[in-house]
């Protein structure tokens, strides 16, 4: 059974046709990288998966629930699908530790003791144990993103969505964040969908690469095939423009 499944999905912003006839299946435990030129609809696609963007046609099954069905409780899907944003979106009014502990406390009703232990373990894992008491405004960009990843992981999600997680970071910060993501990808039960421009990361971690342009999926191949032998001319052109050696 697939974790995420798009069937003939269409998405419009008013008259603008943002997603065109999307058909896509992502299996449990898979790590998929979504690439393409800016404005191609990658972010829109990933944001439909946890309901931040609505779809107008087709159906979109996440963990077996159809997002296009009004009876589906979106909060139940969000419990199982974490998201990491380009601009982190950490809670500015909460400390790093509170950022990680808030949702498990409110949504999962996790006991305070277990919650704190889990949160500290996660902060340790992303290398931020010493920043637990700090406010987000006191963290660097890379630290913020690692804290945001820890926040998502604390919910013990079945899938994690990454929306250009390193695009807003200074170059020297990118490595630390990618290391954390690589770590997560090793966990064979975690489904990951990553929108990124980091080709080296895609090559090293992804099982599959999906190439999008103008709201359409143009290519969906294994990582090796995509980088060595891209079929679509637009994918070839894109690869020639980005540094992927």
């Amino acid at each position: 059974m697939s974790m995420i499944e798009f069937n003939n999905v269409e998405k419009y912003y008013g008259k603008f046709h943002a997603l065109k006839n999307i058909n896509l299946k992502i299996d449990k435990g898979e790590t998929v990288v979504l690439i393409g030129p800016s404005g191609s609809g990658k972010s829109t696609l990933i944001r439909t998966i946890n309901g931040l963007e609505e779809i107008q046609e087709g159906n979109l099954l996440v963990n077996g629930f159809d997002l296009h069905d009004p009876k589906t409780d979106i909060n139940r899907i969000r419990k199982n699908v974490g998201m990491v944003f380009q601009h982190f979106n950490l809670y500015n009014n909460k400390s790093t530790l509170e950022n990680v502990m808030l949702a498990p406390r409110l949504v999962l009703k996790r006991s305070e003791e277990e919650n704190k232990a889990t949160a500290m373990a996660l902060l340790d894992k992303v290398g931020l144990a010493d920043k637990a008491a700090n406010m987000p405004s006191e963290l660097s960009g890379g630290q913020k993103q690692r804290a945001a990843i820890a926040r998502s992981l604390a919910m013990k999600p079945k899938a994690l969505l990454f929306d250009e997680p390193t695009s807003a970071l200074d170059p020297e910060m990118v490595g630390d964040v990618l290391d954390v993501m690589r770590d997560i990808a090793k966990d064979s039960s975690m489904t990951m969908l990553v929108v990124t421009h980091e080709m080296s990361f895609a090559k090293a971690v992804a099982d599959r690469v999906i190439f999008m342009a103008d709201g359409e999926i143009l290519e969906d191949s294994t990582t090796e095939e995509f980088f060595n032998n891209p079929k679509e001319p637009r994918a070839q052109q894109f690869l020639s423009q980005v540094d992927h050696k």
Partner: peptide, 19 residues
Amino acid sequence: GQMEGARANGLSFGQSMRY
């Protein structure tokens, strides 16, 4: 982004508002 972050994190609209 604060609201999106909270909603994506699993908080309801009310919880996101309140906290």
